[in-house]
Amino acid sequence: MENLFDLTGKVAVVTGASSGLGADAALAYAKAGADVAVLARRVDKLNEVKAEIEKTGRKAIAIGCDVTNEESVKEAMQTVIDTFGHIDILLNNAGIAVRGGVDSMTEEDWDKSFDINVKGIFLASKYVIPQMKERGYGKIVNIASVNAVIADKHDMFIRHSYNASKSAVLGLTKGMACSYARYGITVNAIGPALFESEMTAGTLFKSEQFLNTYNAVNPAGRPGNKGELNGTVLYLSSDASSYVQGQFIIVDGGGALV
């Protein structure tokens, strides 16, 4: 039986791949057969991820990249193409969650949220899509958040710029999906809920009160475990989703249902 999730011969690029969900996804791509380029600002951390990928027998490169800087992104994508010849998959994972409401946060923090969470996707996609169009194939997966469609009144979860920027990711995903489907490119988004990562370990996961509240409200009764996002990432990055376009898949244990 054909393995629709097989990525043998594919080349994947993962932004924000130095830790957390990005690093997990990069390794999942390699285990599915893809060669992987991992991008982030922290090259030392990227090299650790690269080493783990190479243990699977797949090729990997680590590239320092600031997704908010156009020249940095342009050079990074060209390096991937020069190394592997092409790019089949782009996982736009780089993101930031800035706490605060509109009555308290700074303009700088607001801009930072949109620069990384939205502009980063625009720039990375800008320098990948032309060669995808030329080849008639591409898979773009944008990491949004369940907080693109729901909010939370808990003080630790008030992040208005995060809500707004992740909602913008959904609009961008739909627009790109409609424009590039004719070229054999699928563009979809994923909305993770709470997963333990470098970004959440020192904040949300340190609050027993918050975790108790989250677990009580969430139908699954717990946050997401390491690796539980990978199935959705692989689905949207493989031929298993060849006719799936402009969709938003929430991975949250059912939290958005309540």
Rank of each mutant, 00 (worst) to 15 (best):
E108I: 08
E108H: 04
E108T: 15
D109G: 04
D109N: 13
D109Y: 08
W110L: 15
W110S: 14
W110Y: 14
W110R: 09
W110H: 11
W110G: 12
D111L: 08
D111V: 03
D111N: 11
D111M: 06
D111C: 07
D111G: 01
D111K: 13
D111A: 07
S113T: 09
F114P: 03
F114D: 04
F114S: 09
D115H: 12
D115K: 15
D115Q: 13
I116S: 07
I116N: 09
I116R: 14
I116K: 10
I116V: 15
N117C: 14
N117L: 15
V118S: 11
V118A: 11
V118W: 04
V118Q: 11
V118K: 07
K119D: 13
K119F: 14
K119E: 08
G120M: 13
G120L: 15
G120Y: 10
I121Y: 02
I121W: 00
I121Q: 06
F122P: 11
F122E: 09
L123Y: 12
L123I: 15
A124R: 01
A124L: 05
A124E: 06
A124I: 12
A124H: 05
S125Y: 01
S125F: 02
S125D: 10
S125M: 06
S125L: 08
S125V: 02
K126M: 12
K126S: 12
Y127G: 04
Y127E: 03
Y127H: 15
Y127P: 07
Y127F: 14
V128M: 07
V128E: 08
V128C: 13
I129L: 09
I129W: 05
I129R: 04
I129M: 10
P130N: 05
P130R: 03
P130C: 09
P130K: 02
P130D: 07
P130M: 07
P130G: 12
P130F: 00
Q131I: 11
Q131H: 08
Q131Y: 03
M132H: 12
M132T: 14
M132W: 10
K133G: 04
K133L: 05
E134Q: 13
R135A: 11
R135Q: 10
G136Y: 09
G136V: 12
G136H: 10
Y137S: 13
Y137N: 04
Y137Q: 10
G138W: 09
G138C: 08
G138A: 12
K139L: 05
K139Y: 04
K139W: 01
K139G: 06
K139H: 07
I140T: 06
I140V: 11
I140D: 03
I140N: 01
V141C: 02
V141H: 09
V141A: 08
V141Q: 01
V141P: 07
N142C: 13
N142K: 11
N142L: 05
I143P: 04
I143F: 07
I143K: 05
I143M: 09
I143C: 06
I143G: 06
A144E: 00
S145I: 07
S145Q: 02
S145V: 00
S145T: 04
V146D: 06
V146C: 02
V146H: 00
V146E: 06
V146N: 08
V146G: 05
N147Y: 10
N147C: 00
A148K: 08
A148E: 01
A148P: 05
V149W: 04
V149C: 03
V149P: 04
I150L: 07
I150R: 00
I150G: 00
